[in-house]
Amino acid sequence: MFKDLFNKKRKYATIPSEKTKRDIPEGLMTKCSKCGTIQYSKELEKNLKVCPSCGFHNKLGALERIQATLDDGRIFEYDADMISVDPLEFPDYPSRLAKDMEKTGLRDAVVTGEGTIGGYPVVLAVMSFDFNGGTLGSVVGEKITRAIETAMQKKYPLIIFSSSGGARTQESILSLMQMAKTSAALARFSDSGGLYISVITDPTYGGVTASYAMLGDIIIAEPGARFGFAGARVIEGTIRQKLPEGFQTAEFNQKHGQVDIVVHRKDMRAVLTKLLELHAGTATKGAMGE
């Protein structure tokens, strides 16, 4: 024993064995990416994925968002079977789509449908950043346009939760034109007197910001949500501009007149219910449409 002790010159770091790793179940604890606080994942889930110590709003997938927003988390989904094709025959696009479908359990980057919030019927569209960066391609554009048209027919208010890296490069021009298509549909909806509430979540950029996300009668953003047209990396990369602290956060954007209200996730349902109630007379009848 003693001999061994003297002979050993090198020091080794301890690497936890496969067995000790297995002792802590996968994902039991979560470390906040903002403040570093470690907490039980279950607690974080219960808190709608908002860090209890610093208030950081983690991203929600479309299904989690629906769960947190609609009464009983229940949605009557539209166009659930619509899927993307590869019109440009773009390198690796089909395999990327397949991978994202498997990863997310979604068929594309938006889920649309109807449900109620505080008892008020709404048409809801929720984007999911985890599917191809929440990019706007033909399917997202078509599903959102159909949702707008349905809201117009049924005279329901429309709520879109945005979360997107922007237009989908793999569908180039077809993707770009979805901006015009959705904006045109929103113009019709607006003329019919319909209420459209846009909720911007982290992150929302490019073609989504430059179309339906910024066309809400009322624009809400979650605290800290970054949104804009060109992201900080693009700006720094193209024009080498130094950007101020907190650039493009919800609070920054509110200060610059781009957002009506910044709403904490725990208050979102209550604020939406209040807004729906305030528009109850007009949204269902259509102020201009009747």
Partner: peptide, 19 residues
């Protein structure tokens, strides 16, 4: 793609025109 354009709402200005 610059801070001044973002601060004055470049996204909204593009969206509004299509609308």
């Amino acid at each position: 793609p610059g801070a001044t354009a973002e601060e004055r709402g470049i996204g909204e200005s593009i969206a509004r025109n299509m609308f």
